[in-house]
Design a protein around this nucleic acid. Sequence first.
DNA 1: CAGTTCTTTTCCACAAGGCGGAAAATGATG
DNA 2: CATCATTTTCCGCCTTGTGGAAAAGAACTG
Lengths: 251, 251
Amino acid sequence: MASERSGSVQSVGRAFEILEQLAAADGVMGLSELAERLQLPVPTVHRLMRTLVGFGYARQLPSRQYALGPRLIQLGAVATKTTGAWAQPILDGLVRQLGETVNLASLESDKMIYVAQAPSPHAMRMFTEVGRRVYCHCTGVGKSVLATLPEERVRAIIGRVGMPPQTSHSIADVDSLLEELAAIRRRGYAIDEGEQEVGVRCFAVAVPNAAVPTALSVSGPAVRVTTEMGTRAIPLLQAAARQLAAELSGS
Amino acid sequence: MASERSGSVQSVGRAFEILEQLAAADGVMGLSELAERLQLPVPTVHRLMRTLVGFGYARQLPSRQYALGPRLIQLGAVATKTTGAWAQPILDGLVRQLGETVNLASLESDKMIYVAQAPSPHAMRMFTEVGRRVYCHCTGVGKSVLATLPEERVRAIIGRVGMPPQTSHSIADVDSLLEELAAIRRRGYAIDEGEQEVGVRCFAVAVPNAAVPTALSVSGPAVRVTTEMGTRAIPLLQAAARQLAAELSGS
DNA sequence: CAGTTCTTTTCCACAAGGCGGAAAATGATG
DNA sequence: CATCATTTTCCGCCTTGTGGAAAAGAACTG
C-alpha cells in the first residue's frame, strides 16, 4: 500500500505508515490492531507511537487508543497553501468564466490527489475536498495524466492499484483504458462521463511538462456541464494549463 | 524548539523537525539551509529528505529545493476532522447564540493550537485558522489554560518559549502574568484585551479536567464584543465547557 | 474478588540500520 | 573553462532501533 523506495529510512517510513493507517480508519485505533494491520511487532509500533505522541503528531485518548494529533493540522494547512497557492488565481479566473468547480490534481503514489480547488458558485455542486485521493482510471484528471505517460508506466500503475469501478460507467479493463488514453491524446483533453460519480461530467487537460504529472478540470452536474459547454471550456482549460506550466518552470 | 522526549526514535523525530522547519519557512528551502538550521550534517538531512519525498510528504522542486508534499494535506484534513469533530456542534451552538467567532484550542508543546472553530457570521471577523499556534501568555485561551496549571509548570513553559509581546497590551513579565492567572482563577474566566491583536477582545474559559489542557473562547472586534456581552457570554461558555468535558470523559 | 484473558508497557541483548565524514557529481557563476 | 556552491553517492563505524520475552494494567467471568 505504501510506496517503499529503496534508500529510505525504515523507522520514518513506518511512522508514516502508522499515521496513514490511522487516517484510513478515520480516526482512532488501538495499539494491537495497529500492529496487526501493519504486520509489525507490537513493541515496535508502541515505540514509534510514543515518539509520535511525544511530538504531538498523534495523541492517546483516555481509552488508550491512538488518534492523529493536532500538530498535523498545521502541517496540512501549510502544505495545502504552498502546494496550491500559485495555482489559485488561475483556478479562480476559470471559475469566473465557466461558473463551475475547477480542480487541480497531481499524481501521487499511483493515485490522483487534489491539490487546489475553486468551488462553483452554484448551490448544488461537487463535493470534493482538497487532499482527497482518487483513482486515475475513472477521473478526468487521472485519465489526462495517464495519457501523458508511456504505456508501460500506465500498466505498472494499474497493476499496483487495480481498476475498481466506481460507477457502472467506469472503465473496467486495461485495453479499454489504453484505447481511451489514445483518444485523449488525439483530441487533447479527457472527458469523464459519470465514471467517478453518477450524473457528474468533467472535462480535463494535463498541465504540459509538469515535474510531477498534474491536470486541471472543470466538473459539475451533467445538466449544466454540457457538451456545448465543453467546446467553450476546453480552450480555456488548455490556456490555463499552459499558463500553469509556464509559472511552474518559471519559479 | 521541538519537544524531544526521551525514548523517542531519533530519525522519526528528525524527520518531523524537517517538516516543521519547512512549514515555519512557509514553504521552500534548500538542503544545506535546512541542515544548517537543524544543526545536522547535510548527508543525514538528505537521506531523511529522500525518504520523505519517496513517500510524498515532501516534494522536490525543479530548483532542487524542497517543499511540503501533498500527502500531508490529507493527514491534516483527517486530523482536523477527528480532533474537532466532537466539539463542532457545541461551537456552532455558541455562535448561534452569541454571533461571534468561537474557538477551541489545546496546549501543545508550550503553545496553544486551535483545533476547532465556528466562524462569526459577520463580514468583519477574526482571521484565525484551525491549526494555527499562538503563545499562551497573550491569548484568552492560553491564559485560561495556564490558570489551571501549577505555577511551576507555568514558569517552565514561559522559560522555554519566553513571552514575546504581540501588542503593546501584551503582558510582558512573569510576575504580572502570575497575578493575572490568579485573577482568572478567582473570577473563573479570562479576558484578552487586545493582547494578541489590537482592537480584538476575547472571553475564554478552560475545559475542566481535560486530558490535554484545552480552552474555549469567543472573540471579535471590541466594539461588538463588549463587557456587557461578556456577562451574557461567560455563563454560556462555562456551560459549553462543562458539556465538552462531559463528552470528553464519556467516550 | 480471586482467576483468567486481553492489551499495553517496560526491559534488554543483539545486530540491523542509520549515521555522517569524505569524496564524487551536478550545476551555478564569473 | 575554471571556480565555487550545493546536492548526491559511498561506505565503514557504531550508535540506535529492533523485537522477543516478560511484567504491569485493564477488562471479563464465574
